[in-house]
Design a protein around this nucleic acid. Structure first.
Length: 399
RNA sequence: GACCCCUUCGUCUAGCGGUUAGGACACAUCCCUUUCACGGAUGCGACACGGGUUCGAUUCCCGUAGGGGUCGCCA
């Protein structure tokens, strides 16, 4: 069930809840009841459940547990008895409950406080398990007191440790790894990879492998195995997970996933087969989708940008022009233009020029891509196509 | 200030009285190789500190230190 906790009208906006829903959907997390789905325990926005809260407040009033401040705020009178939280993660934690001031349930303007509406909703919606951040542990005895005051049984609690930044400081909404949209979607991550990594922070699947699908994680999950210590967010390891998932994607799926970043980069994508081949050729070079465009620019654009190292490669060898000319000749004669044929022609050119293929390949790479790193050279030539490959080889002879 | 949770390699962790303290990421080296990567191999590297309990503590208990959290008419 998804319930939107938007009791604070000033801070909660439609965009905020839309962001939550979008983030959950992106991660592949769904819900049986709630916004966009419906269900018979709604409404699922706390801002629409005021009548329910009024009714429960009236019951507490009848039980003599409330009093009203001069300014109109309504407070619950605590019983001042020790309360033990039986937590699935932290164990039995007892709070003396003697020092805390009585808690406010309703503000002078008639709006309700989060703690109260949460308890009411948990009762009304039949919530059995509450798994939430450890920051709520110290307040849980207050929730239990409200449950008991309403004659209800509290749910099973599991308070999980908070995730910290890499330097151990508290993670806030602006920090890397915090916001789905900003950190992951725009960062070039795959949902399954992020879900997998996040699941291993604060909980270790009892499995030989750590690369696990949502279904596998779900099957393996046991709340009593959740750790009780804070974990730090490690962006590098998260990227490693992403790289693993990237490599496992089909050619088509990888292209679809990369498409938003390709479009944003302005690369020409009219020739979809070529664009798809280009993306596929660098899958083991990158760990993020967002890195792909910079790796494949020369594969899709008409013009190439000669890098400094590539220029030096071409100029460093006095035989460059001659070697490239021999290569040009062999490649021109090819009947088939595919990586394997190109590989063969390159070997033949090297033999004809009496040099090792290892001497020719770097020159060919520099000429075709203007860079000294990238996919296999024959693959580059195959993707670029015969016409552009030959013209680049000719142009490079001028350097 | 009071109260609560926590403490194993740099990071995520396995361990639940007797282990050469294991794995993953990162890092280093080597192999593979036309480049950059991928992949494979090897290496580096930890039980916060001090007391107990015990024949024996990483493991159990108590302190100390350190980290995180709560004490709202925020959620």
């Amino acid at each position: 069930m998804l319930r939107i906790e938007d009791t604070d009208g000033a801070r909660n906006t439609a965009e905020a809840s839309a962001g939550i829903i979008k983030g959950l959907r992106w991660l592949g997390l769904d819900w049986d009841e709630g916004p966009e789905i419906g269900g018979d325990r709604g409404p699922y926005f706390q801002s629409q459940r005021k009548a329910l809260y009024d009714a429960h407040l009236a019951r507490l009033e009848q039980a003599g547990r409330l009093y009203t401040e001069p300014n109109g705020a309504v407070r619950l009178r605590f019983l001042r008895q020790p309360i033990t939280v039986n937590d699935q993660v932290c164990g039995a934690v007892t709070f003396a409950a003697t020092e805390e001031p009585d808690m406010t349930l309703r503000r002078p303007d008639g709006s309700y406080i989060f703690h109260f509406v949460n308890v009411v909703d948990d009762i009304e919606m039949g919530i059995t398990h509450v798994i939430r951040g450890e920051d709520h542990l110290s307040n849980t005895w207050k929730h239990i007191e409200i449950f008991q005051a309403l004659g209800a049984t509290p749910p099973v609690y599991a308070h999980i440790p908070l995730i910290l930044n890499a330097d151990g400081s508290k993670m806030s909404k602006r920090d890397a790894g915090s916001a789905i949209e900003h950190s992951y979607i725009k960062g070039g991550f795959l949902p399954a990879a992020v879900l997998n990594y996040l699941a291993t922070l604060g909980w270790t699947p009892r499995s030989e492998r750590e690369l696990l699908s949502a279904a596998e994680l779900t099957a393996l999950f046991d709340p009593t195995e959740i750790h009780s210590a804070n974990a730090r967010f490690d962006l590098v390891k998260c990227q490693w997970f992403n790289a693993q998932y990237l490599r496992a994607l089909s050619k088509e799926d990888l292209y679809q996933a990369a498409l938003p970043f390709l479009r944003e980069s302005g690369l020409p994508l009219e020739d979809e087969a070529r664009a798809m081949a280009a993306v596929d050729s660098v899958r083991s070079k990158v760990s993020l989708l967002s890195e792909i465009p910079e790796w494949i620019g020369y594969l899709l654009r008409e013009e190439i940008q000669m890098g400094e190292d590539a220029m030096q490669k071409l100029r460093g060898n006095p035989q460059s022009a001659q070697l490239l000319q021999v290569l040009h000749g062999e490649l021109s004669a090819l009947a088939q233009w595919d990586a394997l044929s190109i590989q063969g022609a390159t070997a033949a050119a090297a033999a004809k020029a009496a040099v090792k293929p290892g001497a020719l390949m770097p020159l060919m790479r520099a000429a075709l891509s203007g860079q000294m790193r990238g996919p296999d050279v024959p693959v580059i030539a195959a993707i670029i196509g015969r016409e552009h490959s030959l013209s680049r080889l000719s142009a490079a002879q001028q350097h």
